[in-house]
Structures are given as C-alpha cells and as structure tokens.
C-alpha cells in the first residue's frame, strides 16, 4: 500500500502578545513535532479533547495554517507550505460548523462552482453536469442549488460542505469534527454517507473528533492527541479496547456508556500551555507517574505490534 499523506515533525508555535518590533511576549506550542502516515484508502482517526491541538494539526495539513517546522508529503511529493490552492487539488477539508463554512451571501450553485472553475477549469455544460453529479453523490436534490445557506438544516449544510470538498476531486479529505454540530439521528446519516463516498471515490480520510465512539466506528487506525502531542497510535480495534497510554485509558473510561457505573472520574485538568511542565504533560494527572515522567518527555515508541505509546510506563493490555 502506498502512503497517501505523510507529515514529518510537523509543529506549530503561536506567538502570544505580538509587538510591532522585537520578539513576542510568549510562545505557545500548540502542536509539538508530529509525524504521521496515512495509507491510501485508509481512515486515520484523531481523537483528543479541546486544546489538544487537533484542529491546528488539521489546518496545517491542508495548508490553512503555515507550520512552524516540519514537512508534508502527499503521495510522495513534498508540498509548498503556504499555498492553499496547491493543496486544494490533493487534499480538502470539511469544516466543523457546516453553516459557517458557507458564505451566507452566495447561492449553493455559486459556492459549488468555485472549486470546479478555479481548480479544474470547468465551464458551461461540463460545470453544470459535474455539480449535478456531486449533488447526486451526497443525496441532495438539485433544486437546492438556487437557495442560500441559511435555508438549510445542519445536516443538509454539511452535505453541501462535503460536496464542495469533493468538487476539487481531492485524494484526501480532512474531516474536522464533521458531525459534532449535528444531532445523533442526522449524525449517523452523514457518517454513512462519508463511508459510501470513500469507497466510491477511492478517498483517504483523516477523521478528527472528540467522540471516541464515533472515531472508533469509522477508523482503521487511531491516533490519540494530548496537549499537542500524539500519545498513542494503533489499530482502531485495539486502541480503546486495550489502551497502553494511561490517558487513552482515562478517555475510554470516561465515555458515558449505558449500564456502566459512573467512574473514571479523576481529578486534574490540562496543564497551563503558557507554562508547560517538564517531562510528560500527563504526569500531573497520571496514577502511574514517577520522577522519570516528571523530568523527561517520553517518545512515541512501539509497545506491541503496530500499537505505539508515548509513555515511560505503558499499561499492560
């Protein structure tokens, strides 16, 4: 299998309190160097809580945020870091808030035309035919094309967002919390649609979510992000069933499940990003933490087979 998307030591540092001249007052490491590989046709799920850097990572991968360091390769070709249009043909993005991602002053037709015209040079009949094809693929009625975004429900707007992303004929889709703004009954529709589109168009997915169950249901592999770093990766069926990093286990135990007693309640929250602790960022909340954890940052290393964890004292399965 070929590698569709590869990031090497991709990192992002934000300056806080910029001045007109001179260095900024402080820096926040939103994403620590992250190396990821997504194989062609695979779905890589990325899970993490708010502030873990998952959206920043996603925006770097599509070129919307220029990375501070590291490289991105798509199908073996290194990409120019900051030209979204160069990314556009290869990799597209589906946004979390479906309504906010559509310009309120344009009709759906106008919105759909842009990528087809600018990225593929389509005009006239060919353009209309392609739009009809895409709308058919996402199960939307063609009469929606003349309407404005505010006339649609969240689920419909998200389908439009997906159709627009597909219009670029990308190889890879980055799905940034694509269903978290939707109700459960509609969420399932969109997830099933995404699965169908993937096989129909031979797509590779990077699926970002805070909902463990959703990520598990759609992914081949999963990467768990905490405080800007990947703390665990592995096959979807193993990461939550047999977590190796204590944080992954905390996540899995915290998810409310019918019939399971209330548990996993463990004190502690994210460290202060302006003043990160030395060593493992999770050490402050971790029951297994030792002095080593508080002094030295653990690397991501293989634990068993293709399961990796960044932990000095990984859990037993």
């Amino acid at each position: 299998m070929t590698i569709a998307l590869k990031s090497t030591n991709l990192a992002k540092t934000f300056d806080i309190g910029k001045r007109l001249i001179g260095p900024p007052r402080a820096q926040v490491h939103a994403v620590h160097p992250v190396s990821l590989e997504v194989k062609t046709g695979e779905t890589l799920g990325i899970v993490g809580e708010s502030g873990c850097g998952k959206s920043t990572l996603a925006r770097m991968l599509v070129g919307l945020t220029p990375p501070s360091a590291g490289t991105i390769e798509i199908e073996g070709k290194a990409l120019n870091r900051a030209d979204p249009a160069a990314f556009g043909r290869l990799i597209q993005y589906v946004f979390q808030d479906p309504v906010s991602s559509l310009n309120p002053r344009k009709t759906i037709q106008q919105i759909m035309e842009v990528p087809l015209r600018l990225l593929h040079g389509l005009r006239g009949r060919a353009l209309d035919d392609r739009i009809a094809e895409l709308f058919d693929a996402v199960n939307l009625r063609p009469e929606f094309l003349t309407r404005y975004p505010h006339e649609f429900s969240g689920g419909q707007a998200q389908r439009i967002g997906i159709a627009r992303a597909l219009a670029a004929s990308p190889r890879i889709l980055i799905l940034d919390e694509p269903v978290s703004a939707l109700d459960v009954s509609v969420q399932a529709q969109v997830l099933n649609l995404l699965a169908a589109l993937k096989s129909e168009f031979n797509l590779t997915y990077l699926f970002i979510s805070h909902d463990l169950a959703v990520v598990e249901a759609v992914s081949d592999r999963i990467a768990v992000l905490y405080f800007g770093s990947v703390v665990e990766t592995g096959p979807a069926e193993k990461v939550f069933a047999a977590p190796r990093h204590p944080y992954t286990k905390l996540l899995a135990d915290s998810a409310p499940v019918v019939g399971k007693p209330l548990g996993g309640a463990q004190a502690g929250e994210l460290p202060d990003p302006l003043n990160p602790p030395p060593g493992c960022a999770f050490a402050g909340r971790c029951p297994r933490a030792t002095d080593l954890c508080r002094a030295e940052v653990p690397d991501l290393r293989p634990v068993e087979g293709d399961q990796f964890a960044a932990c000095h004292h990984p859990l037993d399965p």
């Binding site: 009954s185 399932a188 979807a236 939550f240």
Partner: peptide
Amino acid sequence: CVPELGGGRRVMAAIP
C-alpha cells in the same frame, strides 16, 4: 443511532 465504544468499525443505523 448512538455509536457505542467497543462496537468496532461498522455501518451505523440512521433515521432518514
């Protein structure tokens, strides 16, 4: 419709 952790990869039930 609600996906549950531990269910593995699957097609989800949806309400049309």
